[in-house]
């Protein structure tokens, strides 16, 4: 009886995995299709990748997506970290106000944030393009960075910075050498969230950009109408990029973990001597 239940459970999970991964596998397989059918596989070829490589819109889409994600991640991580540290030293009213305002872009539907920005940029007569796209991305990334650093700061000893300064450190040194290393895990996860939010965004980008500056999502959306297997090739590039990123991240965090453990063991051994 129990055995049967376990098999049934495993089977249901198997169905779930098929449901979640079939579209991804389908995309990758059909990006190597020799014919232009989206449904029948007619032999292996890389012609859709060649077609993608010669398509400026697609290549620019990939480049813009990466450039915007990198800059937005960097700026939002720096600003978010400094703001979060400042907030942890501020009074509660200010902290609550900023946290409430940060909730707005996170809780509002994307399309509401998006049309707000669209009207805002046009009210100021800022031409939509790379700059507006970047500003929009930084705007929706910062709240996530702050959100992921705040809990780390809360568990930090509030006197730490003061102790460092009593020992003669300048405020900047106390910040860089004492506080920031302590909240580093929060900063890293904040940066990761910011990067993926920016990399995957469609709705806000779609409304905030113009002048032919498109990211991958917008390229897929505007090309969806025609049967175009090079979209599958573009999708495969995205899938490969993300998979590699995830694997690298996991490998590096595993290595970091091991190094930290070794360091700790060494310190413990020294302490015993």
């Amino acid at each position: 009886m129990k055995q049967k239940k376990r098999i049934l459970g495993g089977f249901l999970m198997f169905l779930l995995v098929i449901f979640l991964y079939a579209p991804i596998v389908y995309t990758v397989v059909f990006s190597f299709n020799n014919t232009n059918s989206l449904t029948r596989f007619g032999g292996f070829s890389t012609r859709w990748f060649e077609k993608m490589a010669s398509n400026d819109t697609m290549i620019n889409g990939i480049i813009y997506t990466i450039v915007i994600a990198v800059i937005a991640t960097f700026v939002s991580t720096v600003v978010g970290t400094l703001t979060a540290i400042g907030l942890s030293k501020s009074n509660r009213i200010l902290r609550n106000c900023v946290e409430q305002v940060n909730q707005l872009p996170m809780m509002n539907p994307d399309i509401v944030t998006a049309i707000g920005l669209l009207m805002f940029f046009s009210a100021l007569h800022i031409e939509k393009g790379f700059l507006t796209l970047l500003l929009a991305h930084i705007m929706f990334c910062i709240p996530y960075v702050i959100l992921s650093i705040m809990p780390k700061l809360r568990s930090l000893d509030p006197n730490l910075a003061e102790a460092a300064m009593d020992l003669g450190a300048t405020p900047i040194r106390a910040l860089v050498q004492v506080i920031i290393p302590q909240v580093m895990p929060g900063i890293i996860s904040g940066a990761l969230i910011a990067f993926t939010m920016s990399f995957d965004d469609f709705v806000i980008s779609y409304f905030a950009t113009g002048n032919g500056v498109n990211n991958i999502s917008i390229v897929v959306y505007t090309m969806r109408k025609r049967t175009n297997p090079s979209i599958n090739a573009l999708s495969t590039v995205v899938i490969v990029l993300i998979t590699t990123g995830l694997i690298l991240y996991n490998v590096f965090s595993a290595i970091g973990q091991r190094r930290r453990e070794k360091e700790e063991a060494r310190l413990r051994a020294q302490a015993q001597d």
């Binding site: 979640l20 991964y21 079939a22 579209p23 991804i24 389908y26 995309t27 059909f30 989206l38 449904t39 029948r40 993926t196 990399f199 995957d200 469609f202 991958i216 999502s217 897929v220 959306y221 969806r224 979209i231 599958n232 573009l234 999708s235 995205v238 899938i239 993300i242 995830l246």
Partner: peptide, 23 residues
Amino acid sequence: FPTWINLLVRTYAWIGILQDDGI
């Protein structure tokens, strides 16, 4: 893992799967 991949990319895949002569 699937949620890390672009929503547009994942949705586009369904077009080929659900078409009249699809998979």
